[in-house]
Design a protein around this nucleic acid. Structure first.
Lengths: 166, 166
DNA sequence: CGGGCGATTGAAAGACTTCAATGGGTGTGG
DNA sequence: CCACACCCATTGAAGTCTTTCAATCGCCCG
């Protein structure tokens, strides 16, 4: 339900206080995990760490809130545009040099992430391509041709549901 | 994007570390707010409080995750059923005695909460009523006639999208 | 009684899904 | 080395669901 990149924390404590996490790595990764008891002990002595943890949780919360709005209020092509914009943002964050955006996800995974079907995703990508907002090198290698337009299309606005941005 | 009831915490810290919250009270409420600096100081000395705060955040996170699935994978009538089930659950939690469920929301607010239109919500409620899953006293006073069925209809399952529960 | 607001209902249009078929790439076995 | 099977992406057509546009109904209030 959310995308993470290098340096991010994952997981949370469920209602029973147990660590909960489900995820899938899109690339090779390195990850650290900590013993809960010892981590809490350290956190108790380091207000900064506790604050950072709380910050991570808050950040995840606002990210999920954003995703809710995307899924609840955006049409298929708009959702796909938002997804690409999000991906591009993460990509820049880790990989400053300009280069094609590697999705590391096939259509089926994208569809699942956006609550759509494979076919709709494919058609939406087609529209974005035809409008020259993006370009495709491979089916999972994207070039953002018009970042401003991409963000505009994928933007969540308060209006009902008809911002068919030309 | 989420429903809260008596005793719940609201709000979180945004990326800049500032308190962020938007909400709407459906009934008269009493609320407490705390000075951030002093609260943090107290939390630093009370690991239990810090843990409770972290728990509240985690709980909000899992609640939002659930909502994501509802909005992303359920059809209109299923979403409405889920909403009623959720409402009924909160209602029981605060108000154990059997009684009609007061929504405190009009159709427009429900529609917004579920990412649907007023008309669709109205039609979905009509279907639930016709199937004798719920009954209406007033437009915002509901009686749950078949709680099991309500939960079944509003359940998020892994299957694609065609569990037209008879 | 008329006006206004919320809810419901109907009809048509629009969007997405589902079913079905095709094309491109890759990997395997003959 | 090539043929074939397979997976993924794309495209087409039909079907289903939701939205949009409109009209009606009931209720409360002035």
């Amino acid at each position: 339900m959310a995308l993470r990149t290098a340096g991010d924390c994952v997981g949370y404590l469920d209602d029973a206080g147990r660590y909960a996490f489900e995820g899938q790595a899109l690339t090779d990764i390195e990850a650290c995990s900590f013993d809960r008891r010892r981590f809490d002990a350290v956190a108790a002595d380091n207000p900064d760490l506790a604050a950072a943890l709380s910050g991570a949780l808050s950040s995840a919360l606002s990210q999920l809130g954003e995703a809710m709005l995307v899924v609840g209020k955006l049409r298929s092509t708009e959702r796909v545009a938002h997804f690409f914009a999000e991906m591009a943002s993460l990509h820049r964050q880790v990989n400053p040099e300009r280069g094609p955006l590697l999705l590391h996800m096939n259509r089926s995974e994208i569809a699942d992430y956006l609550g759509l079907t494979v076919e709709t995703v494919s058609r939406s990508i087609g529209k974005l391509k035809k409008r020259s907002v993006i370009g495709l090198i491979e089916s999972d290698e994207v070039i953002v041709l018009d970042d401003a337009m991409l963000r505009e299309i994928g933007k969540v606005s308060g209006e009902p549901r008809s911002s068919a941005v030309g």
